[in-house]
Simulated assay, not measured.
Amino acid sequence: MGKKRTTQMSDVARAAGVSVMTVSNVLNGRPNVGAETRIRVLEVVDELGYEINLTARRLRTGRTGTVGLIVPRFDHQYYSELAARVSDALAPEGLHLVVEQSGATRERELSALSLARLQQYDGVLLSAVGLDFADLDRIRTDVPIVLLGEQEVPDRYHSIKMGNVAGARLATEHLVARGARRVAVLGGRLDTPHHDMASSRAQGWADALDAAGLAPDPALVIPLESFSIAEARAAIAERVAGGLAVDGVLGVTDEIAIGAMAGLRDAGRSVPDDVQVVGFDNLRISDHVSPGLTSVDPGHDAMVAHALRLLRRQLEDRGAAPEHVVSDVALVERGSTRRPK
């Protein structure tokens, strides 16, 4: 008995009544195919048992068609919105996104950057939290990597950072301009050995108070461990119930600021009448809490565009000089801060 003939892409095209190029577009997830045609091609693929040889494709093109995004947590709203934005930006090019959760630990971030894992991707966007400068400096790979985050990284990496200090300063200046004089920074940290999100935003808070002639009070720096809504809610409620005088709160993320609004309500305080609150991230949910959350917009779409541009640049030129981009920030005013009198 002769060997069974392997189904070819041309067989799928013939059975579906479309061109081979259309079949290729469907199988590669490219968007320029109508829904009915796409469904018909996929039905024929299933009927004929056609299988894509990913190994052969990579050998032929040198690409996997996949980008990896490694983030600390899936359950933090910022990272879910980031993943959605990256996926939407990749879709028109027929590229796919795989998202990994590192748990913000050194071990899992190193595992995600292992040679075997990296070979699955054309490029990787890494939000590094657990890895330090020395760890990153030891990693050697031909797979393009763009680092997302606030810590110091080796110059050879392309990186995207938020305007953390500038954004926190802008938020604190806004609170002071609206009459706040005892502004707490919830989730902030001072005197940390390495720059990170919490310390950078606390620095912006301190700079704004200094400029306004208001001495930063260490008692108003309230560190957090998990940066969760529940932790923020409990922390601010406990401090206020314990006698801490505050008339403004800068949450170092929107989720923390939302927790702060709930905690202030638990402590019998009204937002914005008694205490004004500003967040950082301008998450979509911030427009739908009550009152709406005034927040720092770090330029999400621009950061995603820059990150993917830097990946493409490395794919086209492996020797491309590294770029270090810092995003622009803007304040979006909503109901959690008072209107000017």
Rank of each mutant, 00 (worst) to 15 (best):
E225Y: 08
H194S: 12
S270L: 09
N282Q: 14
R73A: 14
E150G: 12
P340K: 08
G213Q: 08
R189F: 06
K3V: 13
D274T: 12
S80H: 04
V86N: 00
S80W: 02
R189W: 06
E100K: 12
A112N: 00
Y157F: 15
E109V: 00
S228P: 08
A89K: 03
N28P: 12
T55S: 13
G130T: 07
G163C: 02
T172S: 06
D46R: 15
V185C: 12
N282P: 10
R106S: 06
A91I: 05
R40C: 02
L310S: 03
E107N: 01
E36T: 13
Q203Y: 00
R156C: 06
S270R: 15
V304T: 00
P193W: 01
L190T: 15
Q314H: 08
I139G: 00
E36F: 02
L209G: 13
L118V: 00
R169Q: 15
T37G: 02
L220W: 11
S111E: 14
T64S: 04
D122K: 01
A321P: 07
A235N: 03
H288T: 13
A16H: 06
P223E: 07
T105N: 00
I256S: 08
Q203C: 02
R106H: 10
S327T: 11
S10E: 14
T37L: 06
G167W: 01
R239H: 13
V240E: 07
A305Q: 09
V289C: 08
V45M: 02
T66Y: 01
S327L: 06
P223C: 10
L27T: 04
E109I: 00
H306F: 03
E152C: 06
H300D: 01
E152Q: 13
R334W: 10
L82D: 03
H300S: 02
M21G: 13
D135G: 03
L250V: 05
K3W: 09
D75W: 12
A128N: 11
A116T: 13
R269E: 11
V98R: 00
F74G: 11
Y121S: 01
M1Q: 12
H300V: 00
R339M: 12
L311V: 12
N282C: 13
L250G: 04
D142R: 12
L175D: 03
Q120I: 00
E107K: 12
D297C: 09
S10P: 02
L97A: 04
A237V: 10
L42A: 10
R140I: 09
V304F: 00
T141S: 15
G179A: 08
A56G: 14
